[in-house]
């Protein structure tokens, strides 16, 4: 018998601190698989952002830099401009990328920085214990929207792929999820493409991954996958929002 599935090299042996069933782990693996398949772990530098995934610097086996909250894409810009031969990626949550770091996100995108952005959208702040995120759904109950997100006072969720795909600097924007084997495989291809684009000098590529937060959603991991399918995907449709190479622009 031969091994057909094992831990990618670009993940360290450090056990992940994430809660049981948190899909961060799946996405970590997909990023590491992309680094493995493209043979770029040795050239890669990842930027960890503040939030649950801040300690991803212990999990990715490539060089890693921790950015201040929201500044991951500014840090990535500095890294890439300093050493264009390095393969630079950020790994960011929704609070980091779409609230405190919105300016850094929009401007890295509009500059067309040749970086790869992995965006975890789980509609909640995980690390601080379940507060409203910029991507929390209308009516969603969180610690800071105990009566449900009221759009009259808390506004509407930010649709990041839609927003960024209007910018000329963006080469590739795709929204995926990891709720099933089939969707994990789609996500895997999207993430690999986002890295391949950087190697080809195509410019800013973002993959938004609809993810679960079973703990702060108050659901079991399997129930959380159902909640994601029933509530998140309708609000955040999956698909390619922009692909300059293929001429796709939604």
């Amino acid at each position: 018998m031969a091994i057909v599935f094992e831990k990618p090299h670009a993940l360290t042996d450090a056990p992940l601190h994430y809660c049981p069933g948190c899909t961060h782990g799946i996405v970590h693996r997909l990023v590491a698989q992309a680094l493995d398949e493209l043979g770029v772990e040795g050239r890669a530098v990842g930027v960890a952002s503040v939030g649950c995934s801040v300690m991803s610097y212990d999990y990715f086996a490539c060089d890693m830099v921790e950015a201040p909250h929201g500044r991951a894409q500014a840090v990535a810009t500095g890294l890439k401009r300093a050493r264009p031969d390095n393969v630079i990626f950020t790994y960011q949550g929704d609070g980091d990328l779409a609230a405190i770091g919105t300016a850094e996100t929009v401007h890295a995108a509009t500059r067309g920085e040749n970086i790869t952005v992995i965006f975890i959208n789980n509609a909640i702040y995980g690390m601080t214990g379940g507060q409203m995120a910029p991507t929390s759904l209308p009516g969603q109950i969180t610690q800071t929207t105990p009566y449900g997100r009221d759009t009259n006072t808390a506004g509407y969720p930010v649709r990041v792929c839609e927003l960024l795909s209007t910018l000329d600097g963006v080469a590739f924007a795709q929204r995926v999820t990891v709720d099933s084997v089939q969707n994990v495989n789609i996500a895997r291809k999207a993430i690999k493409k986002a890295f391949q684009n950087q190697l080809d000098g195509k410019g800013y590529s973002i993959v938004e991954v609809l993810s679960t937060c079973p703990t702060n959603w108050g659901l079991s991991p399997v129930e959380a996958l159902d909640w994601l399918r029933q509530n998140m995907i309708p609000y955040y449709p999956l698909g390619v929002y922009k692909d300059v190479e293929a001429g796709v622009k939604k």
């Binding site: 500044r71 840090v75 890294l79 300093a82 300016a103």
Partner: peptide
């Protein structure tokens, strides 16, 4: 070299953080 006009002072200093992390004078 690189001259980059950032979107804010926050972004500029964090670009410096990134470039300094890469080991260059920034």
């Amino acid at each position: 070299g690189t001259y980059l006009q950032a979107e804010s002072e926050l972004a500029a200093i964090n670009m410096v953080l990134g470039a300094a992390s890469a080991g260059v004078r920034a």
